[in-house]
């Protein structure tokens, strides 16, 4: 057991400041445990989101000493003994209160994402897929929607003006997941990512992959393959000519 200083940002959309708490820390604890202790003993109205406390639900995202992290998976022993711990809310999203931000941006973007299109000729129970084929999409379905990738992406982190055009890494892996789904009946997932999600804004700095608590290779396995294939089709002269002749317009948004 040791005593530590926690600096926690407190405030709302109008503004706020850091509050300092001296708090005890026990062996094996994570940052969220200490935040809960502050809540129970010193600041009962301290606003923080959490659910599972096991890295499975993606609720307790915040920035700890400047790094986007899940508080439930950040062990106290990653900090030096005398290092103060500073917690701030996710910077990319508007503050609701204290450590809670308004993440509705992400839900609005997923509302625009065309849904899985089931194959027309298969009834329930008739789906057949090979494990090796489903694994590519399964990697992206590990996503716990903590939105740390969205938060860290410099396209929107300090650029609210890009938000209308840019869906962000979370939605790029959703597009890639459906693109690679063995039975998805649509064939325009990549084009949609390029034209409607703003895939072109991404210049593959891999910050999203760095902060992903599920270690999803967002850039390498989703973004780059989609960019390459879009580029391959768009800028290959023969494909370009074919598109001109057969007018492959954007497909309707959903069925």
């Amino acid at each position: 057991m040791s005593a530590r200083t926690f600096r926690v940002w407190r405030g709302d959309a109008e503004g706020g400041d850091f509050a300092e708490f001296d708090v005890e820390v026990n062996e094996g604890e994570v940052v969220l445990d200490v935040v809960h202790r502050i809540q129970a003993e010193q600041a009962p109205d301290l606003a923080v989101r959490w659910n599972c406390k096991a890295g499975k639900c993606g609720s307790c995202s915040a920035e700890v000493n400047g790094r986007p992290r899940l508080m439930c998976m950040t062990r106290m022993n990653v900090f030096e003994e005398d290092e103060p711990v500073t917690i701030t809310p996710l910077r990319t999203f508007p503050v609701v209160r204290d450590l809670v931000t308004d993440v509705s941006f992400n839900y609005e973007k997923s509302r625009r994402m065309p849904a899985f299109a089931p194959p027309k000729d298969l009834r329930p129970g008739e789906y057949r897929m090979q494990q090796v084929d489903v694994e590519r999409s399964q990697e992206f379905r590990k996503c716990i929607e903590c939105f740390l990738c969205q938060n860290t992406c410099h396209v929107v982190r300090d650029h609210d003006e890009n938000k209308p055009e840019f869906a962000g890494p979370r939605l790029f892996i959703r597009a890639a997941e459906l693109d690679m789904h063995p039975l998805d009946a649509r064939s325009d997932r990549r084009e949609w990512a390029q034209d409607d999600q703003g895939l072109g804004y991404c210049n593959i700095t891999k910050c999203c992959s760095d902060v992903c608590p599920e270690n999803i290779k967002i850039t390498d396995n989703a973004i780059i393959p989609m960019k390459e294939r879009v580029a391959g089709e768009r800028y290959d002269p023969l494909v370009w000519l074919g598109r001109k002749i057969f007018r492959k317009d954007k497909a309707p948004k959903s069925e």
Partner: peptide, 18 residues
């Protein structure tokens, strides 16, 4: 369970694809 596949769920597979 089968219905979930028509919603897009991706369960692990057997060797024969089920």
């Amino acid at each position: 369970i089968w219905e979930l596949e028509t919603y897009g769920a991706l369960f692990d597979r057997t060797a024969d694809g089920r």
